[in-house]
Amino acid sequence: MGSRRAVEVGACIVIILSLVGKVSAFIASIPVVMVAALLCYMWAMLAALGLSNLRYSEAGSSRNIIIVGLSLFFALSIPAYFQQYGISPNSNVLVPSYYQTYTVASHGPFRTPNPGVNYVMNTLLSMNMFVAFVVAIILDNTVPGSKQERGVYVWSEAEAARREPAVTKDYELPFRVGKFFRWVKWVGL
């Protein structure tokens, strides 16, 4: 499913259903094994979708291989280091992996005199997606490369971008809002 409309409608339905107690009870009764299977599928699709964003860039370029490799490496190693601070070794509490970010926030290795900064930085640096995003953004904008290597040649000419249906669909505004903002570049193509 690649339509933004489906995500928007699904989000509205989930928000409405979250207000119904019986639905919450039903979701809580789903076995952990089923939830784990759904999460495996969801994360595989999310990874494939993220990598499909590289479709316009040169996949064989050593610049792009290094950027993707380092982003994935740091996204796995830095949060693993931060997540080991989640629970004290003397504690008998078993915290599910999806709560580790919250336990790291108050006990993580990032320590300054400001507790708010500590909380935010420990939380962000214990999330894989955030670390991958920051490393990829920094490397992509600092390592030199041509427009073809970076994949931005598609957007360099407005006419070429208008002819490319994938680009037009990816960057249109939801619910036909683009027709009211035709004066803005890239809106209402």
Results as ranks from 00 to 15, higher is better:
residue 1 M to Y: 08
residue 4 R to N: 13
residue 6 A to R: 10
residue 8 E to N: 10
residue 8 E to K: 09
residue 10 G to E: 13
residue 10 G to V: 11
residue 10 G to C: 13
residue 11 A to N: 13
residue 11 A to I: 15
residue 13 I to K: 12
residue 14 V to E: 05
residue 15 I to R: 00
residue 15 I to D: 01
residue 16 I to E: 00
residue 18 S to K: 01
residue 20 V to H: 02
residue 20 V to T: 02
residue 23 V to K: 08
residue 27 I to A: 14
residue 29 S to L: 07
residue 30 I to K: 12
residue 33 V to W: 07
residue 34 M to Y: 08
residue 34 M to Q: 04
residue 35 V to T: 09
residue 35 V to N: 10
residue 36 A to S: 11
residue 37 A to F: 07
residue 38 L to D: 05
residue 38 L to I: 06
residue 38 L to M: 08
residue 38 L to C: 04
residue 38 L to N: 02
residue 39 L to A: 05
residue 39 L to F: 08
residue 43 W to R: 08
residue 44 A to W: 04
residue 45 M to C: 10
residue 45 M to T: 13
residue 47 A to M: 05
residue 48 A to I: 05
residue 48 A to E: 04
residue 49 L to M: 08
residue 53 N to Q: 07
residue 53 N to F: 06
residue 54 L to V: 04
residue 55 R to H: 08
residue 59 A to Q: 12
residue 59 A to N: 08
residue 59 A to M: 10
residue 61 S to D: 09
residue 63 R to Q: 04
residue 63 R to Y: 07
residue 64 N to Q: 12
residue 64 N to A: 02
residue 68 V to P: 05
residue 72 L to E: 07
residue 73 F to H: 10
residue 73 F to N: 07
residue 75 A to Y: 03
residue 77 S to T: 15
residue 78 I to L: 14
residue 78 I to N: 10
residue 79 P to M: 11
residue 80 A to G: 11
residue 81 Y to D: 10
residue 81 Y to L: 11
residue 82 F to N: 10
residue 84 Q to V: 02
residue 86 G to M: 04
residue 86 G to W: 07
residue 87 I to Q: 04
residue 87 I to C: 01
residue 87 I to W: 04
residue 90 N to C: 07
residue 90 N to W: 11
residue 91 S to W: 13
residue 92 N to L: 09
residue 93 V to K: 15
residue 94 L to H: 13
residue 94 L to N: 14
residue 94 L to E: 14
residue 94 L to V: 15
residue 96 P to A: 05
residue 96 P to L: 03
residue 98 Y to L: 09
residue 99 Y to T: 06
residue 101 T to N: 15
residue 102 Y to F: 15
residue 103 T to A: 15
residue 104 V to K: 14
residue 104 V to G: 14
residue 107 H to P: 14
residue 108 G to N: 13
residue 111 R to N: 11
residue 111 R to G: 04
residue 111 R to C: 09
residue 112 T to M: 13
residue 116 G to Q: 09
residue 116 G to W: 09
residue 117 V to M: 12
residue 118 N to Y: 03
residue 118 N to Q: 07
residue 120 V to C: 02
residue 120 V to D: 02
residue 121 M to C: 08
residue 128 N to H: 10
residue 128 N to S: 12
residue 129 M to V: 05
residue 129 M to Y: 09
residue 130 F to K: 01
residue 130 F to D: 04
residue 131 V to M: 06
residue 131 V to F: 09
residue 132 A to G: 06
residue 133 F to K: 02
residue 134 V to F: 12
residue 138 I to H: 00
residue 138 I to W: 00
residue 138 I to L: 01
residue 140 D to V: 00
residue 141 N to V: 00
residue 141 N to Y: 00
residue 142 T to D: 00
residue 143 V to L: 03
residue 143 V to N: 00
residue 143 V to H: 00
residue 146 S to I: 00
residue 150 R to G: 02
residue 152 V to M: 03
residue 154 V to R: 03
residue 155 W to E: 05
residue 160 A to R: 11
residue 164 E to S: 10
residue 166 A to Q: 12
residue 167 V to L: 09
residue 167 V to I: 07
residue 168 T to A: 05
residue 169 K to T: 05
residue 170 D to A: 05
residue 170 D to L: 09
residue 171 Y to K: 02
residue 171 Y to H: 12
residue 171 Y to V: 03
residue 172 E to W: 06
residue 173 L to Y: 13
residue 173 L to Q: 14
residue 173 L to G: 12
residue 175 F to R: 15
residue 175 F to H: 10
residue 176 R to M: 15
residue 176 R to P: 13
residue 176 R to I: 13
residue 185 K to M: 01
residue 186 W to A: 03
residue 186 W to T: 06
residue 187 V to K: 10
